[in-house]
């Protein structure tokens, strides 16, 4: 894909078409280029840091697996240290951060981490992503009881499950407090279509007989699409039996609460969601 993108930049498509012989291979390349055409600029928009979203994702995985024990998921658990707002005591540049992550801070609790420069750089990208997320975060310490009341009165359970209550159509929120940071939850409530995680996507299929079904994408491969319809029935389709398959990566049934909830309401709801920490294990 990178190669095609580079190709697009260096010569225009029409130039390319005029020089292209009518070989099948060439045509495939053009189709492929057309297919990625709208994707490339969009994926660049996703993070507001301009960093590669895959790198940010890798960084978040590393951060959540080895840094959160001390720094916490929001990066502010070590007293006096805040990794999530883009300013640091000891580091001025990304290189400084990479150095600290790999070598630790001698004489303090901050350990050296045996990781490659690339992994450390990915973590740094994630630190910047957290800062960008937090820049427009207005979450204050909310009232979780009021958040719970809002969760119930707004009908979140029509689409979401918490424990053994609610619909399975949307993502299960039982463990959401462990999985997402406040800023991310706030954004989901205000601008839900902005960042739809791949694992939460819906799919719309149109069967050869013209039936349209939208549901939660459970699984898919070259030959199949498996989904859960709004009545929670699991369905499995052969792609050959489908006229159309649309992965809903830019639109969601999750309503936006922008303008419908006060800042305080949003904080209350997010505070309640942050308390959801999974299945109690005895």
């Amino acid at each position: 894909m990178a190669a095609i993108w580079a190709l697009r930049r260096s010569i225009s498509l029409s130039q390319y078409l005029s020089t292209a012989k009518r070989s099948k291979k060439r045509l495939y390349i053009i189709y492929a280029a057309l297919a990625v055409w709208p994707l490339a600029p969009l994926s660049a928009q996703r993070g507001n840091t301009g960093r590669d979203p895959h790198e940010v994702q890798t960084g978040s995985e590393v951060f959540n697996s080895i840094c959160t024990i001390c720094h916490g998921q929001e990066g502010n658990q070590v007293p006096g240290i805040d990794l999530a707002h883009g300013t640091f005591h000891f580091a001025k540049t990304d290189q400084d951060l990479i150095h600290i992550i790999r070598n630790g801070i001698p004489g303090t609790e901050m350990p050296a981490n045996n990781m490659s420069e690339a992994s450390a750089a990915a973590v740094v990208s994630y630190l910047h992503q957290m800062a960008a997320d937090n820049a427009d975060n207005t979450i204050t310490n909310g009232n979780p009881d009021h958040g719970k009341a809002l969760y119930q009165s707004l009908g979140c359970a029509k689409c979401h499950r918490m424990g053994e209550v609610g619909s399975r159509l949307g993502p299960d929120l039982t463990n959401i407090g462990n999985l997402r940071r406040s800023a991310v939850l706030e954004r989901k409530l205000l601008d839900p279509a902005k960042d739809i995680l791949p694992e939460n996507r819906f799919v719309t299929v149109v069967t050869q007989s013209g039936r349209t079904i939208t549901g939660r994408l459970m699984n898919q491969d070259t030959f199949t699409v498996l989904l859960m319809d709004p009545s929670e029935t699991l369905l499995s389709f052969d792609r050959a039996d489908l006229k159309q398959v649309t992965i809903e990566d830019k639109s969601t049934i999750m309503p936006s609460y922008q303008g419908k909830l006060s800042n305080q309401d949003v904080s209350d709801l997010v505070t309640y969601l942050k308390q959801q920490k999974g299945v109690p294990v005895q």
Partner: peptide, 21 residues
């Protein structure tokens, strides 16, 4: 409103019962 939202809203509006049984 997106098409997807419409399809699903029709679902909910039509009162298609979510089988929680």
């Amino acid at each position: 409103m997106t098409k997807l939202l419409k399809v699903l809203l029709v679902w909910f509006a039509a009162g298609v019962s979510v089988q929680l049984g």
